[in-house]
Structures are given as structure tokens and as C-alpha cells.
């Protein structure tokens, strides 16, 4: 554990609710997205993250952290998500295909990729409004450039410029992105609409 984490963890063990809350809020998006990555269900993801945090809070004294607090919670969140997924699969034939549990050896890489995705999403939020809008329409609504131009009443050239601008920015942010694992390719169109 890093010194900082060590300090945080000791405070949580001493039942310092403020530190706990701060840690939760600071890392929430990371764990939430990790769960979403498997579940594609924001409600469930929040529930799982909260369950894990509650457990951590309640059992803090008994828990021994080996590597880092963050990877401890990460692992718990992923395991819960996978359990949930197995359950869902039985219940309603969830369309998702993954079944591989991450090996411990790839765990740190997964966490790194999770971190990169978060950075990517933050970068998208930083784009100018119109630029982001065009980018989203193209990427998520799968509209043709002409369709976007028509809808927004702008020229197709402007559409291209916006998308180029967006991609350039994102490319810059993620210059060091390594290849993403197969299990990431899971989607549920439901939330894509």
C-alpha cells in the first residue's frame, strides 16, 4: 500500500466516517464503471459497489489488505459482478458472453485500462459542447455525417471538423493505450439507445 492509502485505510479501520466518505466519493466512478463493464446495468452496479463498501466499513477491523485497498475493493466488486452475472444468466438469459474471471496477474492491467477509460470519458466531457454533440451523434447514434449535418443545420465539413477535433483530443489523451482485452467487448444495446 502507498503511504497515503495506508493512512486512509488506518483511518477507516479507526472508523473515521469522513475519510471513508471521501475515499468512496473519490473512487466511486472507477468501481462503478468496473462493475458496469461486466453488468451493463448502472443500478445494479451502484448496488454492488455500495454492498462492497458497506462490507469494508463493517468488517474493517477484520480485513487484511495484502496489495492495496483499491485492488482489494476492485476485486470484490468484480467478483460480485460476476456472481450477479451468473445469476442473471440463469434468470433471464443475459446476452453477455463473458465467463472468464480475471486472473490475478492481469488484474493490475485491467485496473489500468479502467483508469484509461475513465480518463477518456473525462476528456470527452472536456470537449466543447457542439463538438461533443456531433461526436456522440456519430458514435452512439450511428448517424451518417450527412444526417448529423441535416439535424444540426451545419455543413458536412463542419461535422467532419468536429469529429476530427474530438478524435485528436482523445487520441492525445490516450497516446499510451495498450490493447484492450476481449472481455471488454460485451454490450447490451438497451443502454446504448
Amino acid at each position: 500500500m502507498s503511504l497515503n492509502e495506508e493512512h486512509i485505510w488506518r483511518s477507516i479501520q479507526k472508523r473515521d466516517g469522513k475519510v471513508f466518505e471521501h475515499y468512496y466519493k473519490e473512487h466511486y466512478k472507477f468501481f462503478f464503471l468496473a462493475a458496469c463493464n461486466y453488468l451493463k446495468d448502472p443500478r445494479l452496479a451502484q448496488e454492488i459497489v455500495n454492498d462492497v463498501f458497506i462490507k469494508v466499513w463493517e468488517d474493517a477491523e477484520a480485513i487484511r489488505i495484502q496489495s492495496s485497498l483499491r485492488s482489494y475493493i476492485y476485486r470484490a466488486v468484480i467478483n460480485r459482478s460476476l456472481n450477479e452475472l451468473d445469476k442473471n444468466k440463469r434468470e433471464r438469459q443475459h446476452q453477455s458472453e463473458l465467463s472468464r474471471r480475471p486472473e490475478e496477474t492481469v488484474e493490475s492491467r485491467e485496473m489500468e485500462e479502467q483508469e484509461l477509460r475513465l480518463r477518456l470519458y473525462r476528456a470527452i466531457d472536456q470537449l466543447p459542447d457542439q463538438c461533443r454533440k456531433v461526436f456522440m451523434m456519430s458514435r452512439f447514434e450511428q448517424l451518417k455525417q450527412q444526417e448529423i449535418a441535416d439535424q444540426l443545420n451545419i455543413s458536412i465539413k463542419t461535422v467532419k471538423n468536429h469529429i476530427t477535433r474530438a478524435l485528436k483530443d482523445l487520441y492525445e489523451v490516450l497516446g499510451d493505450w495498450n490493447s484492450l482485452p476481449v472481455w471488454m467487448g460485451v454490450i447490451i444495446l438497451k443502454y446504448f439507445l
Binding site: 462503478f32 464503471l33 458496469c36 463493464n37 451493463k40 448502472p42 452496479a45 484509461l116 477509460r117 477518456l120 470519458y121 470527452i124 458514435r139 452512439f140 478524435l167 482523445l170 487520441y171 490516450l174 493505450w177 484492450l180 471488454m184 467487448g185 454490450i187 443502454y191 446504448f192
Partner: peptide
């Protein structure tokens, strides 16, 4: 970036 990376942006 365009395909895999963006998948969870909605979340």
C-alpha cells in the same frame, strides 16, 4: 478509442 473504449461512456 472509437469502438471498445467508448462502450461504457453512457454509464
Amino acid at each position: 478509442i472509437w469502438k471498445d473504449g467508448m462502450g461504457d461512456y453512457v454509464f
